[in-house]
Design a binder for these strands. Structure first.
Lengths: 222, 222
DNA sequence: CCTAAATGTAATCGATGATTACATAACGGA
DNA sequence: TCCGTTATGTAATCATCGATTACATTTAGG
């Protein structure tokens, strides 16, 4: 083989599989890799995400100024999925009798919340913990979360208007409800449900029971 | 100055302040450094702990096989303090009318729990999260925690016996109570109480209100 | 076409957890 | 009192990680 001239011949894509120099949509692939890594329980490192994207260790920094930005983007994606599932559940609940009963919608919300958190623990953690990237570093995530909270507040306000609540302190009820659901999700996440781990169904059933207990505690009607 | 012989002259401690080759109780100092680092919100690294103890980066590994073991030891220390505070609060409650009322003791427990968690957020996180060292890696911590849980179960059993509870499903009540308190603590920890951050008192007052709401929800007597 | 911006690569830096070989101190029995 | 064993700290080294920089290649627009 004769020595090639210093300038390489233009790389012609001979097969469509040949990876081009420019990655199709590296940003997206990196976010997915980060979410996948988290879901596997592994440490999420920029390098590993780059490795999965079959790209050099420095490449991700063309799309994210630093690790936190990647994590924030991953969190936003997870939050999008989280919210989509909750709104889907509320959409279904609207068809049923829940449309008229704010507490039933409240219940549906809590169930969807915990269901998702049980099935996507690592993603829930990324969303909620604020330890994987600077808190408030993602306005989108903050706004998105605020809207979900406003939704629950509306439900409680409706319930109060219909005389369904024993207490008039809506803020207190709202915080307690959030704490209950958030705490349950995190207990699951942090390994406080050791035995039940095997049968996922049992945890979800307990989640339902806990929500019902809370609602029966704040409701006038038994 | 003439060249010294290869064997250094014996190091005589001329002042008591002169640090001896052997650190007094490095293990203890490292644990305290780790807790202090956590409390400052900094990353807890073995090296930094060693730095604070004015010791070489490798020294800690004479006392802990790896970073996790150091974190586990720190968690055990934090848990000891946590438990001490709770038991102290329960001791005080015994003197009052709470001695006879299991739900008042339950309340005192929850208050002490949240009070400590609000004031030592980083230590609470180390204890509860199981992310700083392998979960179940510390039998002491696990046992200690189980005993605290058993305590609450006893309170609920007493309350049920006295006909103070609306529901007979004690397990459900217990899980819900844990989730509520744990969730509130973690919400504070994870920055879900943005505005109130300034006035700590407000968060603690809300903690009290949330606990009362829960108890009034499960109690027969209004 | 040809240049400029976008995007990926390669090399490098400082910090970290971890391991190893070595040095020094502390302790206890002869 | 001396000596040797053990506990404990030091020094040197390694791989990994986040991050930065200089350079290469591709893509797009005038």
């Amino acid at each position: 083989m004769p020595a090639r001239p210093t300038s390489k011949p233009r790389a012609r894509r001979q097969k469509p599989e040949a990876r081009p120099y420019h990655h199709g949509d590296l940003r997206r692939v990196l976010i997915d890799a980060a979410l996948q890594l988290a879901a596997e329980g592994a440490e999420v490192s920029v390098r590993e995400a780059a490795r999965r994207a079959a790209v050099s260790p420095g490449a991700p920094f063309r799309h994210f100024p630093n690790r936190d930005a990647l994590m924030a983007a991953a969190a936003e994606e997870a939050q999008r999925r989280f919210r989509a599932e909750i709104e889907a559940a509320l959409g279904e609940a609207k068809g049923a009798e829940a449309a008229a009963d704010p507490l039933l919608r409240f219940r549906a919300f809590g169930l969807a919340y915990l269901r998702w958190a049980m099935r996507n623990p690592a993603h829930f953690e990324i969303i909620s913990t604020g330890r994987y990237f600077a808190h408030g570093s993602s306005p989108e995530l903050t706004r998105d979360n605020a809207e979900l909270i406003a939704l629950t507040e509306q439900m409680l306000a409706d319930a109060a208007e219909q005389g369904l609540l024993r207490s008039a302190d809506l803020k207190r009820i709202q915080i307690a409800g959030r704490a209950l659901v958030y705490g349950f999700a995190r207990m699951n996440l942090d390994g406080h449900f050791p035995r039940w781990g095997v049968g996922k169904g049992e945890v979800e059933r307990m989640a339902e029971g806990v929500i019902d207990l809370f609602i029966s505690g704040i409701a006038t009607t038994d």
